[in-house]
Design a protein around this nucleic acid. Structure first.
Length: 668
DNA sequence: GATACGACGCTACG
DNA sequence: CGTAGCGTCG
């Protein structure tokens, strides 16, 4: 290993030339405690010390299978390992300036080009690099880089096999064991501090994974979707979102007061003290003390899944709320408590000054394919506001009503605006496409693009004119549709709808009666899964479901639902990922556009856009997203058009719909 | 006697 | 169906 800081000016120039010409570059980050990204997974990420770079000028000399010359270390021909120190030094510290510059030059040379680069957990490296560069380079300069990441490759091969660490992956996926260990086990090798040897193992691993991906026809998906997405996510993660901390703290206090008040009311209603947030204590009060279940034997009360205990879930409490004041109080308590703990205090605890950065992941345990957000989960922040009635004990004052909306705590920077682009009913449109149900297709193909799909669906299904429908009909239609899409059974639907299982079953039946091809699609999907052992999304991503042939009825049924669910949700995830990539590339190649992607909430993309560019960018986003109806390189040709809803505003909580000139109905 | 951790329950989002 | 995350309890 050669330390870049000890190189002379000439040697550095040589290294840069070699880097530009290298056929393969293998990277890993090294932390200050001496561990690397390749070591057993660390929960807390220590500060980064530098990056280890392996330059390989020859395309693998050891292709003669199983040759004992494949020892790490003896394989060094055409290899060079360089250590780049990445020191986060204060701006005023001038010493080491040249080394710092060289590190940056090297990194940019590696990340700015389109060579074969390999790194385990590439997103972390990209984030670190981008932070290291700071404002010296634009993220656009690394927008094209595609780092081959074995973790993502393995996930694509089998999404169910949950995030294994590097050495587990090697043990599982490396066919050429000779490269890993001469005689000892992989585990033993791991103990050695031979990080540069590990880089060669990383290289072998990636080559083997590449072969597997190519065999299974997943290579294109890997390169042009998952890898490109890594860059998108890294850039998104670097961007800080502005949060109104004062408002959050104020809200926290108000919610705290409200919780105390509700707690007292609950105790009063129950006639005893108990821990309101404890479901087991509530169960005792509700069913042993008050014996509410005895008063509603006509209704079936849900039970907890694992034990045959009485559930205290929302569905139960809804049924009981007419019998006693307590259930209603608990429902409100839970709602307020959830908002306070998860979305107010939760966000406060992950904030760094007035900003915060959520973590984004497109791998690990996401079996269905969608990307996920963590710390906090920005995707689960309530869509609608809640009303809090603050009781005033001062005489003569009206009770004060306060509206609380966690999304409005997210505010755009001065001079910038949030732009949200929502794929309207992607999943339903996909269901129409996948099932080719003529009735369902008609809903989307007719020139009623401006109308509400669920209303027309409800009217079509109930045989009533749209004007005669009530809002609850629309809600019901929506819920039934999605329960079919998600593969939920009638029991689950009855809980959601607050009806009996029979009624819910009837709704599902009549839906499937109307849209006959949907049932055919479900059966076709299950059949295909049984034949091939896996189901495939619209862009070719797979999920293996071994239980589809299980003799166990429960397991098999679950696998059947998962199969249908995956095809629809997985395909929706594919489209959203493509949308992110396409828009990202568009911005990157534009000299003027500065818009940044901030968050992805399943089928909604949230951007922060300079005020002056909102209109132009909105057009780009809409065109790009709607053009995904046809993705030629993946053979995607949807039978239904895609529709995008655009809205903008200064806070995420108060977005107003944007006029969309192009999509106005062409009728009178 | 304090405390760490996994199992379980609940519920936001889609 | 499947993400994350908060809470209780043994």
């Amino acid at each position: 290993v050669c330390d870049a800081s000890r190189l002379s000016q000439e040697e550095r120039a040589l290294v840069l030339r070699e880097t530009a010409q290298a056929s393969v570059i293998v990277l890993t980050m090294v932390y200050q405690d001496g561990t690397a990204q390749l070591n057993a997974e660390q929960k807390s990420c220590p500060p980064v010390s530098g990056v280890l770079v392996l330059l390989k000028s020859e395309l693998d000399a050891m292709e003669s299978e199983g040759c004992s010359a494949g020892l790490p270390g003896s394989e060094g021909s055409g290899c060079k390992v360089i250590f780049l120190k990445l020191e986060q030094r204060p701006a005023w510290a001038q010493q080491g300036y040249r080394q710092d510059r060289f590190s940056k030059e090297m990194l940019l040379c590696i990340l700015g080009s389109a060579q074969d680069v390999i790194c385990f957990k590439a997103k972390d490296l990209l984030c670190t690099a981008l932070q290291y560069f700071g404002k010296e380079i634009s993220w656009k300069q690394v927008a094209l880089c595609r780092i081959l990441d074995p973790q993502i490759a393995a996930w694509l091969l089998d999404p169910a096999d949950t995030a294994s660490c590097f050495w587990d992956l090697v043990a599982k996926r490396c066919k050429t064991r000779a490269a890993v260990k001469p005689c000892a086990g992989a585990r033993e090798f791991e103990q050695q501090p031979n990080v540069s040897g590990s880089l060669l193992v990383l290289y072998r691993l990636m080559m083997d994974l590449r072969a597997s991906l190519q065999e299974q026809g997943l290579w294109k998906l890997f390169c042009s979707v998952e890898l490109r997405l890594t860059t998108v996510l890294a850039v998104m993660e670097i961007h800080r979102i502005h949060v109104d901390k004062d408002a959050l703290e104020k809200t926290s206090k108000i919610l705290g007061m409200k919780l105390k008040q509700l707690e007292q009311e609950a105790h009063q209603a129950a006639g005893q003290q108990f821990l309101v947030s404890s479901s087991s204590q509530l169960r005792v009060v509700l069913f042993e003390k008050l014996r509410l279940h005895e008063r509603c034997e006509n209704k079936k009360l849900p039970k907890t899944v694992l034990r045959q205990q009485q559930s205290t879930s929302e569905a139960t409490l809804m049924q009981l709320q007419d019998l006693h004041p307590l259930p209603k109080i608990i429902l409100e308590y839970r709602q307020v408590h959830k908002i306070k703990s998860a979305y107010v205090d939760g966000i406060l605890s992950c904030m760094i000054s007035p900003f915060y950065n959520p973590k984004w992941g497109n791998t690990s345990s996401a079996v269905t394919g969608p990307i996920t957000s963590k710390k906090p989960n920005i995707q689960a922040i309530p869509r609608q506001s809640i009303q809090i009635i603050k009781k005033q004990y001062v005489q003569g004052k009206e009770p004060e009503v306060i509206t609380i909306h966690p999304r409005s705590m997210f505010i755009s920077e001065e001079g910038w605006t949030f732009l949200a682009a929502d794929f309207s009913q992607v999943e339903l449109r996909l269901l129409a496409h996948l099932s080719s149900d003529p009735e369902l297709l008609r809903v989307f193909q007719e020139p009623l693009a401006a109308g509400d799909v669920f209303i027309s669906l409800a009217s079509q299904w109930k045989g009533l004119p749209e004007g005669k429908l009530k809002p609850e009909d629309r809600e019901q239609a929506k819920r039934i549709v999605y329960s079919v899409v998600y593969g939920a059974g009638k029991e689950r639907l009855s809980e959601i709808l607050g009806l009996t299982a029979e009624q819910a079953g009837q709704f599902v039946d009549s839906f499937l009666q109307k849209y006959k091809q949907v049932r055919a699609f479900t059966q076709k999907t299950i059949q295909q899964c049984q034949d091939q052992g896996c189901v495939v999304s619209i862009m070719g991503r797979r999920r293996h479901l071994p239980h589809i042939l299980s003799p166990d009825w429960t397991l098999r049924n679950q696998a059947e639902r998962q199969a249908v669910n995956f095809v629809v949700q997985g395909s929706a995830a594919d489209l959203c990922k493509m949308a992110m990539i396409r828009i990202f590339s568009h911005i990157a190649s534009s000299p003027t556009l500065t818009a940044r992607l901030i968050a992805q909430i399943h089928d909604e993309l949230l951007f922060e856009v300079e005020d002056s560019q909102v209109e132009e960018f909105a057009g780009v986003v809409q065109t790009t997203m709607e053009s995904l109806q046809h993705i030629d390189c993946f053979g995607v040709h949807l039978k239904v058009p895609l529709r995008v809803m655009l809205s903008s505003g200064k806070s995420w909580g108060s977005l107003a719909e944007l006029a969309r000139p192009r999509s106005l109905p062409h009728r009178l």
